[in-house]
């Protein structure tokens, strides 16, 4: 059986090409093979640290972590791999006009009432938005890497000016062209702006929201993502590390028995606090009449019960997840 092999135009090594690859960066020599000439853009790379630095960072963290350091002897790294993920990053300017309803609880003395206030305004903002240049993709730590890239943009260099031999890793093909990326970035910027306006003005609903978006400087970055898989007592856990600054993006860690017990105790305390608050409310129901301020007590009491529920769920969960934010 014969299968067509696409070769790198510079060094001749086989490369993995699919029909909607915009380009393929050769993993051996770092040369960019373009397949869609009209979507040629400047590609930048955020150079990755080498594998031993990644592992060093992993062990340092495990030794410093108050829980993990006790079992560090029993940990074993089973797999380490790094990839360059193609990410579009772009400067976006938004200008928005909005009007909506703010719902406020106003209390004066023991009286509380709910007010609906019509509000409107204009909002403009500059932001950085990044999206992966891959379709419906998931990878451990990818979401965190993308939000990190847009909130703290890393230093990058032109791919052809990098010293590929020092920083080479497998490069994932980009599957989304720049024009598609611009549409997606606009969509994301509109949604984010609406959320921002909603939260900062405490709106419960919009009557009108219009947003005009200007996308400038779309860059394609290759950002290194490393996944370290480690073993503890036959269970496997993962750590995602950003390859350029060795920040831990997401880590799953075992839950120890002591932590389970602590969670259960916390759950018990939360129940008792809830009981106290609700019984106070029940006593005061007579004196407050139908006033709304008692609503506060009910909400606090129920929140305590919800906290108790989530603590006891955590007590029997399989991993603790720590995320970069």
């Amino acid at each position: 059986m014969q299968e067509t092999v696409v070769k790198c135009r510079r060094c001749g090594a086989p490369i993995e090409y699919t029909p909607d690859s915009i380009f393929v960066v050769c993993s051996y020599c770092g040369y960019t093979n373009w397949f869609v000439d009209e979507s040629k853009v400047q590609i930048f790379v955020v150079p990755s640290k080498p594998r031993d630095k990644i592992l060093e960072a992993f062990w340092n963290r495990m030794k410093k972590d108050s829980d993990m350091s006790k079992v560090v002897q029993e940990l074993e790294v089973v797999d380490t791999y790094g990839i360059y993920v193609p990410i579009f990053i772009s400067k976006v300017e938004v200008f928005s006009t909005w009007s909506g309803v703010e719902v406020r609880t106003v209390s004066s003395g023991k009286q509380t009432r709910v007010e609906r206030i019509q509000r409107e305004g204009k909002f403009s903002d500059k932001m950085l938005i990044s999206i992966p240049a891959r379709r419906t993709a998931e990878e451990f730590g990818l979401d965190e890497l993308i939000s990190k890239v847009s909130s703290l943009p890393p230093n990058y260099i032109k791919l052809e000016e990098s010293n590929w031999d020092d920083i080479k890793l497998q490069v994932l093909n980009a599957e989304i062209s720049q024009s598609e990326a611009v549409d997606e970035i606009k969509d994301k910027a509109e949604d984010l702006t609406r959320q921002k306006i909603k939260i900062s003005n405490n709106l419960s609903e919009f009557n009108f929201y219009s947003c005009s978006t200007t996308v400038t400087e779309v860059n394609l970055l290759l950002v290194p993502l490393w996944i370290v898989t480690y073993k503890y007592k036959n269970g496997v856990y993962n750590t995602a590390i950003s390859g350029y600054d060795l920040v831990f993006l997401k880590t799953t860690e075992p839950v120890f028995f002591r932590q389970r017990i602590l969670n259960l105790v916390g759950s018990l305390v939360a129940v008792l606090v809830g009981v106290g608050v609700i019984s106070l409310w029940l006593r005061n129901i007579g004196s407050f009449g139908n006033s709304n301020s008692s609503l506060f007590f009910v909400v606090v009491g129920l929140v305590c019960f919800i906290i108790a529920y989530s603590l006891s769920s955590t007590a029997i969960s399989d991993v603790r997840v720590e995320r970069w934010h």
Binding site: L272, G274, V275, S279, L280, L282, A308, Y309, S312, A315
Partner: peptide, 23 residues
Amino acid sequence: LVSNAILGIILGFIGSLVSSAPL
């Protein structure tokens, strides 16, 4: 708090049923 032990028992019972449901 409210000199009503029965009320406290009932609330404690309900709250703990909710919180120990996952277990």
